[in-house]
Computed example of a mutant assay.
Amino acid sequence: MASGAIRYTSDYRVVSRDTNVLDTEENCRIKCVWSGKVNNDYQIDFTWKFDWNELKNQGVAEITGHITVSSNNNSFTPTRIDVKITEDNQEITKVVGSGYTTYTVYYEYSLTPHYALISEKPGYDKMFAPSDQNDTILVVGGKKLHVNKSFLSYHSEYFRKLFSSDYKQGDAKPPKRQRKQIPDNKDGQIEQIPIKDISFKDFALLLSTFYPNPVFPTDATVEKLLKLARRFVVSSVINIIEYHLLNNSKINSEKMLWMADEYLMPKLLEKCIRGLNTVEKAKKLDQSPEYKKLSDSAKAKALDRLIKLF
């Protein structure tokens, strides 16, 4: 699946034997470092290095499009380079020029991110299939997940209450007349428990994060998982996400600070507060939509950090 094309046009730059990096820009989460130098044949060795790791973490599989490099005085014919970027920090190179010692040049690109096609339920059929270890069935969106009560109860207070005999409230467990018994080849009868107001895809994603052979969170799934982990009281999922955000994430610091505050991730909150170490970062936080959503406690910690720093 492709999103819309991302376009960029650089300013003019003078290239000679002594130049190297000509331009560094970040546009829609694509960072490009453009370099150029006149070689011994009086041509220009151009390099474009693309960093798109943040897009990759959000599900982009590749970027395709073209780069066009031109001169301001027609010292060479505008040159188009078709590109297919599949690796982070991938370099695109091109030699252009026609015998000058210096050139005044600019470039432009049109690049289209392509998102990986993700199955609605990647491996969920196998993960939640009937087995000797599973002793109940959760029905979500009309589909069945065979699960183990003890395992879910260990990880979640919500499921401990759901599976207890005296649990009578909440949207997950219906009145007894709605609960069904179905034949099972080995155990005779297995109870089915509907889980309301959630899609099968989202619920399976949550369970798969801490089930055996877990699916690790990505920047594209962390916010949804945090909401689900809070609803179903699964602290282990929040801990897994905090580790991801601390060590692997490319999410901007303002949003990360808000998530740390909103979902009670103390290590991440401390790291984000420590990261407020320049006036520019403080202004960026103040102007962000996330700042208005911070708790008074988080705002006080940010202010205290800035007072001590400056």
Rank of each mutant, 00 (worst) to 15 (best):
V21S: 14
N277D: 15
D88R: 04
S249H: 13
L285H: 04
Q43P: 03
P113W: 02
Q58V: 06
I241S: 06
I63N: 02
E223V: 10
S110C: 09
D45L: 15
G170T: 03
H114D: 07
R13T: 05
K196G: 05
V14Q: 04
S71E: 09
N248A: 12
G4H: 12
I241G: 04
K250R: 14
D82Q: 05
L162M: 12
E223L: 10
T77E: 11
T24R: 13
D41S: 15
R80D: 01
R179E: 11
N252T: 10
H244K: 11
D202H: 14
L205A: 08
G59T: 05
N277L: 02
K224P: 00
E91T: 12
K144R: 15
F210V: 03
S249F: 14
T68Q: 12
A300W: 00
Q178V: 09
I307C: 08
D166Y: 11
C32Q: 08
L269K: 14
A172R: 02
L309V: 03
I195G: 08
A229M: 05
Y167V: 00
K281T: 06
Y154S: 03
A300L: 07
S297W: 01
K196D: 12
C28S: 03
S295F: 01
S70V: 13
F216D: 07
Q181R: 11
K301R: 08
K255S: 07
P122T: 04
Y106E: 13
N27S: 03
F50A: 01
L294Y: 01
N134S: 12
S3V: 07
N213E: 11
K49T: 14
K201Y: 10
N239A: 14
V21C: 15
L264V: 13
I118F: 04
Y291W: 13
I63M: 08
A260T: 02
L269D: 01
Y211H: 10
S35L: 08
N277C: 11
D187E: 08
S295C: 05
E157A: 12
G123Q: 09
Q287V: 03
D184Y: 05
A300F: 03
D286I: 14
Y243G: 02
P183W: 03
N40W: 10
K121T: 08
S153K: 07
I92T: 11
D82P: 00
L205T: 03
L285A: 02
S253F: 15
Y8C: 06
K94F: 05
V222S: 07
E280Y: 15
L206G: 02
R160L: 08
T278L: 12
N27F: 01
S71Y: 05
F232L: 04
A300D: 06
R179P: 00
G142S: 12
L138D: 04
L205E: 05
S288G: 05
Y124I: 01
S236A: 09
Y158N: 00
P130Y: 09
D286L: 15
Y154T: 10
E270D: 10
L145E: 10
Y291T: 12
E120Q: 09
Y107D: 07
G4W: 07
N27A: 00
R7I: 02
K143W: 10
I193L: 11
Y100E: 15
D304R: 03
K144L: 11
F310R: 13
L152A: 01
